[in-house]
Amino acid sequence: MSSAPDLSPIADADWPEAVADLLPGFAGQLNVYRTMAHGPDLLRAWAPLRQHVVKDTALGPARSEVVILRTGHALGSPYEWAHHVVRARACGLSDRRIAALRGPVEAMEPEDALIAGAVDELFGRKALSQDTQARLTALVGVQGMLDLIATVGFYSVLGYLLNSAGTPIDHDIAEALERDPLEG
């Protein structure tokens, strides 16, 4: 039986030439993309979708973080959870609100409950109900609803990759959470 490949984050000195142009940008900033660089073609294809899902989403930063945190929790991804606790705080989410995203939707603020419930439906039912689609559309529009679905899919792929590779949480994020642990 062969052993599993080493998917440790790739150091600058070993960075694949095929994606050398991505190293100074987003790909060189986080361990998740340094892990993904083991598949340069995947990393290259990932870049435009990342731009939309992470930067240009119709959900806006705070709602996007709610989706990502609930997705990271559902996947049991310590990397995604830690990184997005820090990002959610930067977007103005309180520790109480962030911590609630690990629990039952009934204990969340109404908007978070709708969004987290939609994430749960995607994991559980593999589709959004007609009622959830209507409620999300009223809240964030059709593009926002589609972006929510895409965000769950995007971060699911990242979560599977991170969990499979055992990618370590980036040092600055680990330090930030050590200095200021999540309350609640």
Rank of each mutant, 00 (worst) to 15 (best):
L158T: 02
L122Y: 01
Y155W: 05
W46I: 10
A174L: 06
Y33K: 06
F26M: 11
Y33F: 15
H73F: 11
D56E: 15
V142M: 08
K126V: 07
G72C: 04
G92P: 10
S3C: 12
L182E: 05
T57G: 12
A113F: 09
P78A: 10
G166S: 06
P61V: 14
D21F: 03
D14A: 15
T137K: 13
L101N: 04
L93Y: 08
N31M: 05
L7S: 01
H171N: 05
A150G: 14
G103M: 04
L128C: 12
P9W: 00
P24Q: 08
R70M: 09
G39P: 00
G76C: 05
S164F: 10
A27K: 00
D95E: 07
D21T: 12
E17I: 09
E121Q: 15
L59C: 13
P9C: 02
W15K: 05
G60M: 11
L148V: 04
H38C: 00
D120L: 11
M1L: 13
A45T: 12
Y155G: 06
S2C: 08
G60L: 02
L122C: 04
P16V: 06
M145K: 13
R97F: 06
D41G: 11
P16H: 07
A100K: 10
L69H: 00
I169A: 07
M1P: 12
N163R: 15
P5H: 02
S2E: 11
A27E: 00
E175S: 09
E121D: 07
D14M: 09
W15I: 11
A82P: 11
R135A: 14
S156I: 03
F154G: 00
E175Q: 15
G25N: 04
A134W: 01
I10R: 01
S8V: 00
I10T: 12
A99N: 03
V86L: 08
A90P: 03
T57K: 03
L69N: 02
L23G: 05
T71P: 12
R70D: 11
A99D: 02
G60Q: 00
V142Y: 10
A116E: 02
L59M: 10
Q51K: 12
N31S: 04
A116L: 11
G76P: 05
W81G: 09
P181H: 06
A90G: 09
R34T: 06
L42F: 14
N163Y: 00
A99Y: 04
N31W: 03
D147I: 02
A74L: 05
A13H: 11
K55T: 15
A82I: 05
G124A: 15
G103L: 10
C91I: 03
D180V: 13
A176N: 05
F26N: 06
A118Y: 10
M1Y: 08
D180L: 13
R125D: 15
V53F: 09
D120H: 01
M145H: 02
A118C: 08
V32L: 15
L161M: 14
